[in-house]
Design a protein around this nucleic acid. Sequence first.
DNA 1: AACAAATTTAACCATCCGGTTAAATTTTTT
DNA 2: AAAAAATTTAACCGGATGGTTAAATTTGTT
Lengths: 204, 204
Amino acid sequence: METKKDSTEDKILEAAKNVFVTKGMDGARMQEIADEAGINKALLHYYFRSKERLFEAIFGEIIKYAFPKITQIVQADGPIVTKIEQIIDAYIELLIKHPFIPGFVMKELNRDPSGLFKIVVKFGLNPQAVFDHIQLAMDRGEIIKMKPQHLAINILSMCIFPFAARPILSFVVFKDDPKALEAFYAERAEVIKKFVIDAIVVKN
Amino acid sequence: METKKDSTEDKILEAAKNVFVTKGMDGARMQEIADEAGINKALLHYYFRSKERLFEAIFGEIIKYAFPKITQIVQADGPIVTKIEQIIDAYIELLIKHPFIPGFVMKELNRDPSGLFKIVVKFGLNPQAVFDHIQLAMDRGEIIKMKPQHLAINILSMCIFPFAARPILSFVVFKDDPKALEAFYAERAEVIKKFVIDAIVVKN
DNA sequence: AACAAATTTAACCATCCGGTTAAATTTTTT
DNA sequence: AAAAAATTTAACCGGATGGTTAAATTTGTT
């Protein structure tokens, strides 16, 4: 299961990620992290002084993936439809690799939203630039008109929600059939792309 | 703020709902619930023997709203497009009234998915019936063909996700402007209905 | 007034948990 | 071999927390 270098620090980070992601900051136990890392609690504190520091290390690592470089894709040249397809592809690929991110990020940002400001600054998030680009494409008649925020949220919703609600999908929709669930996720990118394009490309 | 009968039990349930919904099962404190209900801890345990029982009472209450009667709407007569519009309207209306539900349900079901089975049984959830109805409408040529699961998840995603990710929307997209956020939510039903219909109604 | 139920007060218990400490042991480095 | 670093062991501390208890007080009912 371990792909990284097998150093103790990496073992701790890997174990902490697993525990924090499933239990959350409140539910996670330092003892459990130590157990899962195959070490003892004393050594765990020897590497990461406190639970908070360890959590921040994990959270920072994960948050990198949660807000990918949408801005870069949008601000490149080319038709907006192509860019939307690229964003959907990039997002779904990312989420299939790290399916736990949405649930974790939403849980922790709901618990303590104060870190959001830091994140926005650190990653230079500027959604307005994205919205402006979408608006221009609408003005050029590339796609039908609507508030850019709604279009952006529609796309992100269809990408992210099925992963955030994984337990419900898994049990209610796919009756505990992991293969069916994985197949569903694998189809998502194509489905969402077609769905969005059918919804926004100007008909004649 | 209190609309219910002002009995102590109702005060407790109201307070517990607020605390559990924001802090989750792990983060909630019995003392805080007692304080918010304007009583003391002893009386809190006098009414609800344990934290677990109190939580289950709240969870059961909330879960009623989380899985509304989609089946009823879908299985009625009439064109599928009309039913989809009704479902979107019903869902958005519900979520505007109870915007905390998605985050709470997703958090707790991720923490402990074991209760899902009970819920499915208790509410007689049968998504397959919904999928079958969608499939029939596709076969009749009412809407374009795709896997019914994808269509259903697309719709639910666009309805639910913006509420589950409320902190992110609020801060990142709407720069802490509550009015803009509320306006956005108020527009959702119309936007999603148009978006979905444009995406699935057969063009010629 | 008398009784029962609801509520408060305040102390207490057991447990969990994050964190610390010091000494012993093992591993790695020099 | 010697020194340094990593790791273990095991005990401990202090605070938070869920839960209990018993007695006193208030409120509501008959």
